[in-house]
Nucleic acid binder design. Structure first.
Lengths: 192, 192
DNA sequence: CACTATACATACACAAGGTACGTAAAGGAA
DNA sequence: TTCCTTTACGTACCTTGTGTATGTATAGTG
C-alpha cells in the first residue's frame, strides 16, 4: 500500500476518530475492539497505532473532542445571553444540558470516560473546559467563596445525572422539559 | 485438592468477594484480572467461575453488596432521625454522603459500576435501593409530583459528584464538612 | 455402601491489545 | 536528479486474559 500525503494522513486520522466516536457511543468502549474501529475506518490497526498511542489514547482523543464541543456550546450560549450574571449562568447551564444530552455524548462522556481515563484525569479535563466557567459564573452570582467548589460539583453532578436521566427516558423531549424546569428551580436557589 | 463442606464453600465464595472488593477498589475493575483475585483469595480461577457467572458477574455481586450497605446506612439514619419528613430527608442524605465516601465505595460504585454493568442496569439497582427512598422522602416534603423524578436525579447526581469530590480532595475531612453544608443549603431549597 | 451432586483444579481454545519489523512513498537537501 | 531521511501505514508475532471443557475427589443422601 503506497503512502499518503500529509493532508491525506490527517484525513485518515480523522476518519479513525469518527469511526471510534460512533462505535464507542453505540456499543461502549469495552465492546469495541481496535479491529472494529480499523475495519469501520477502512484501515488496519497499524494505522491506529501510528496516529494514537493505544486504545486508551484513542478514546481520550474522542472524549477530548466531545468535551471541547460541549464547552464551546456552553460559552456560545452564555455570550449570547443578556449580560446579567444570573442569566448567563442560566443560559450556560441549559446549553450544557442540551448539548451533552445528544446521544453520542452521554455514553462516552458520562459513562465510559471516568472509568477509562480515570476519574481524576477526567475531572481535570472537565475543569479545564466547562467547570471553570461554571465556578466563575457562580462567583458572579455571589455564591460564598468557600462554597464555590462544592457548589460547582453539586451543580455539575446534578446536570450530568439529569442528562443520563433524559437520555434513558421513554419520552426524552418531555424529560428534557422537566429537567430544564427543575434546573431553573435549582439555579434560583443558588442565585438567591 | 479435597472438597470442602457446604459451610466452607460459602466461606470461599465470601473470601473471593472480599478479595475482589478490595482489589477493584484500589486498582479498578479493568486492571484486576481474575487471576489476581484468585491469587489473593488463595484459590484458582476455577473456584471463581464456580461461584460466579463470569468477571462481570463477580463485579456485580461486589457492587450489589456495597449498594445494599449504603442503602442500609441511609435507612438506619432516616429511622434514627426525628420523625419530621424534612429531618428524615436530611439525615438520610447526609448518611448517604458519609457512607459512600468511604474510599472502597467511591471507585466501585461511582466510577466503574456504570461502565461495567451498564448505566441502565446500574440505575435500576440504584432505584431498588436508595433512590426509591429518596423519591419517597421528596414527596413527603411536598415536592411537586411531576418533578419528583427529576429532582431525585438531580439530588442523587449532586451527592454522587460531591462524594467523588470529597474522596479526591487534599483535605477530605474539610471537604466533607463543606459538602454537608452545601448539601443542607440544597435540601433547604427543595424543602421550601 | 453405592451414587449423585458439589466444589473446586487443570488444561485448552480464542480473542484482543501491544510490539517489532517491513515497506513504499513523500518531502526536502545536495 | 539523486540521495537520504522521515512519514504513514501494513503485516506478523507475542502476550495477556477471558471463557470453557474436562478431570477429580469428597460431601451428602438414600
Amino acid at each position: 500500500m503506497p503512502r499518503a500525503s500529509a493532508a491525506d494522513a490527517a484525513r485518515t486520522a480523522e476518519r479513525i476518530l469518527q469511526s471510534a466516536s460512533t462505535l464507542y457511543a453505540t456499543c461502549g468502549y469495552a465492546h469495541v475492539s481496535l479491529d472494529d474501529v480499523a475495519q469501520d475506518a477502512g484501515v488496519t490497526r497499524g494505522a491506529i497505532y501510528h496516529h494514537y498511542l493505544n486504545k486508551k489514547g484513542l478514546f481520550s482523543a474522542v472524549a477530548a473532542r466531545l468535551q471541547a464541543q460541549v464547552a464551546a456550546a456552553v460559552v456560545a450560549a452564555a455570550e449570547g445571553a443578556p449580560p446579567s450574571p444570573s442569566s448567563r449562568l442560566r443560559a450556560g447551564s441549559h446549553a450544557f444540558l442540551d448539548t451533552i444530552t445528544s446521544s453520542s455524548f452521554v455514553r462516552i462522556l458520562l459513562v465510559d470516560a471516568p472509568a477509562v481515563v480515570g476519574w481524576q484525569e477526567w475531572r481535570r479535563l472537565d475543569d479545564e473546559n466547562s467547570v471553570t466557567h461554571l465556578r466563575e459564573a457562580l462567583r458572579n452570582v455571589h455564591v460564598t467563596e468557600a462554597l464555590v467548589d462544592v457548589t460547582a460539583a453539586h451543580l455539575s453532578g446534578a446536570m450530568n445525572e439529569a442528562a443520563l436521566w433524559i437520555a434513558q427516558h421513554a419520552d426524552p423531549e418531555a424529560a428534557r422539559a422537566e429537567a430544564h424546569a427543575a434546573l431553573d428551580q435549582l439555579l434560583n436557589a443558588y442565585a438567591a
